[in-house]
């Protein structure tokens, strides 16, 4: 099976660990990942004002790029890209007048967009197309004894139209953790916002959220916390530096992309995990559990 892949900006630098671990895992599962030969930044946030059509152009252009490759679906990893691409797509599908205006704006594109590309998150590909049962059969290194707190954040599950999982109590990552042989632990902050882009001008708010989210996971016994968004990863991992300054009793905990755990379980080499990009080193706990 081949899938068209949209990386987004951060997957090519700060979140290279997310990309490399995903590509290795999908190859192990027999999937050929074809990155769009041309793509542009999706804008990262879905434009909420009713009349602000211009900001839907960026995501829709990527869907046109997908059609240019003769594909009718586009897979992405980053929760923010997924949310923006999917919502822009849903918006134009349900509003032909806006779609028409957007196509008119982009009169130099050779293809007219007709709402005919499906936006998929990697988790949907794993659950609905590859299927978790098939993944279970490919596991070479089960995550035995690893207690994993899966953090969803906001944009992977909200708003409801995103439709990936239950909006209040998503469980897809816990199911995947079980498939990989790990121990998923539940914690009440799994869908609490990490304060997102406030990290640029108000990092102290992020440090406060990071403190509450991570201490909640720790109180339930988590060894690691997983994420699916490069901005959550930055806030929960790199902002632990600020968190400890604000809360001296805070203890560091490693943050991993869920795909890094998938890659470990599927036997991907360690260089695809790119631990050099982490602030809190995940290697000690992974070594202790015999996973690397």
């Amino acid at each position: 099976m081949k899938v068209s892949y949209y990386p987004g900006c951060t997957l090519k630098n700060n979140a290279k660990n997310f990309e490399d671990s995903t590509i290795c895992s999908l190859n192990k599962l027999g999937i050929q990942v074809e990155e769009l030969p041309r793509w542009n930044c999706c804008g990262t946030v879905f434009s909420l004002a009713t009349d602000d059509l211009i900001h839907h152009l960026a995501p829709i252009r990527n869907l046109i790029r997908t059609k240019e490759t003769d594909s009718d679906s586009l897979m992405t990893l980053c929760a923010m890209c997924f949310n923006t691409l999917k919502r822009a797509n849903e918006r134009v599908k349900s509003d032909p007048e806006s779609l028409d205006k957007i196509n008119t704006f982009m009169y130099r594109e050779n293809i007219k967009y007709e709402g005919d590309v499906k936006v998929l998150h990697l988790l949907e590909l794993l659950r609905d197309e590859i299927k978790f049962e098939a993944i279970a059969q490919q596991i070479v290194k089960p995550l035995k004894g690893l207690k994993v707190a899966n953090y969803y954040g906001c944009l992977l599950v909200r708003p409801k139209e995103i439709g990936l999982d239950d909006v209040e109590n998503p469980t897809i990552l816990e199911t995947l953790t079980t498939v990989l042989g790990g121990d998923p632990i539940d914690f009440p902050y799994k869908t609490e916002c990490c304060a997102s882009y406030q990290t640029v001008d108000k990092p102290e708010i992020v440090a406060e959220r990071t403190y509450h989210i991570l201490t909640s996971a720790q109180s339930q016994g988590a060894d690691v916390v997983t994420v699916s968004c490069p901005l959550c990863a930055f806030n929960l991992d790199h902002r632990q530096k600020e968190t400890i300054k604000q809360y001296p009793e805070f203890k560091n905990i490693p943050i991993l992309y869920f795909t890094q755990l998938l890659a470990i379980a599927l036997g991907c080499p360690e260089d695809t995990l790119r631990f050099d990009l982490h602030y809190v080193d995940p290697k000690p706990i992974l070594k202790e559990k015999g996973l690397i």
Partner: peptide, 15 residues
Amino acid sequence: GDVPPIAIISNLRKF
């Protein structure tokens, strides 16, 4: 400089 592109872009888009 210390934050990833996704943070800068979304911050400037919103603010």
